[in-house]
């Protein structure tokens, strides 16, 4: 079943259109920066963007920072929201279940497919950004040092390792989104409702983060630590928020997957 799901995802044109669109924004930013040479001043704009003019190898990180707040979660919400609800809407869910594919197994297969999509999306964005960054933007760091956010030098090796960690962190953040969308996907028969519901949760979270009255809630909001991967580029690495973010996302994943399972395995399939 997992193989069938992966095959379906890879064969579906929508997967590649989504990733293409996701990729378009950072590429556009890279082109604009290269043409105008006008980077945001340090400390403003998306993370790392002020540094990429000097060092194109930081552009994958900048690209992730560009898509992480909205584009990436929207894409993940659409794909994960479609997982069960899409099959229900097209009527194929009943035929999958009587094949028979156990409900738990179907949910696991969908989860694997969604996780693969997240991986694929993050890696494609990072890889494209690496290429555009190297081609279009500064390559000052040929001398093998990059400046960390704290101002000290990082070797290329260190930079690669920390970039890897940052990508893992971004993927984990998106898995939280995927779990929420997958749960909603088992609740409604409309993939649109599942995706929009997930986005509503994320927008509410972002909004509450700006509200002082909600301070006590902040550590539990799903978007709270998304951009904390920047801390991985401090010297020494500031683990506190990264650790909390990872723990929080793991909790969201666990709770919403359990809810999705409990709901889906006891649900009347009446689409």
């Amino acid at each position: 079943m997992i193989g069938v799901e992966l095959h379906k995802m890879v064969r579906d044109r929508r997967t590649w259109v989504t990733i293409g669109l996701l990729d378009a924004l950072p590429t556009l930013v890279a082109i604009l920066l290269a043409v105008t040479d006008l980077g945001p001043r340090p400390g403003t704009g998306p993370a790392f963007l002020s540094a990429v003019l000097a060092d194109g190898k930081l552009f994958p990180l900048a690209a992730i920072a560009i898509v992480l707040p909205l584009f990436m979660p929207a894409a993940v919400a659409v794909v994960a929201g479609d997982a069960i609800a899409g099959e229900a809407q097209s009527g194929t869910l009943r035929y999958v279940l009587v094949r028979p594919v156990g409900r738990t197994r179907l949910l696991v297969a969908k989860l694997v497919s969604v996780v693969s999509f997240v991986l694929l999306a993050v890696l494609v964005v990072a890889a494209t950004a690496y290429i555009t960054g190297s081609l279009l933007l500064g390559n000052q760091s040929i001398a093998a040092t990059t400046t960390s956010v704290s101002g000290t030098a990082l070797s290329t090796q260190e930079l690669a390792g920390r970039t890897g960690l940052a990508l893992v962190y971004a993927i984990l953040s998106m898995l939280g989104v995927a779990a929420i969308a997958l749960f909603l996907s088992t609740v409604t028969e409309s993939p649109l409702a599942a995706a929009l519901g997930t986005l509503a949760v994320l927008i509410a979270s972002t909004l509450l983060l700006t509200l002082d009255a909600a301070t006590s809630l902040h550590p539990y909001l799903p978007t709270r630590y998304w951009l904390s991967f920047v801390d991985l580029f401090r010297d020494p690495i500031l683990w506190r928020n990264v650790g909390r973010g990872a723990g929080l996302q793991a909790a969201y994943v666990a709770v919403f997957l359990a809810a999705a399972w409990a709901n889906f395995t006891t649900k009347d399939v009446t689409d």
Binding site: G3, D12, S90, G91, Y95, V101
Partner: peptide
């Protein structure tokens, strides 16, 4: 309640996909 299958696949690919599920 009526047939249903994946719209972007051919009939043969649909049956193959359903068959491969179990």
């Amino acid at each position: 309640e009526g047939p249903a299958a994946y719209r972007h696949l051919s009939g043969r690919a649909n049956l193959a996909a359903f068959d491969a599920m179990a």
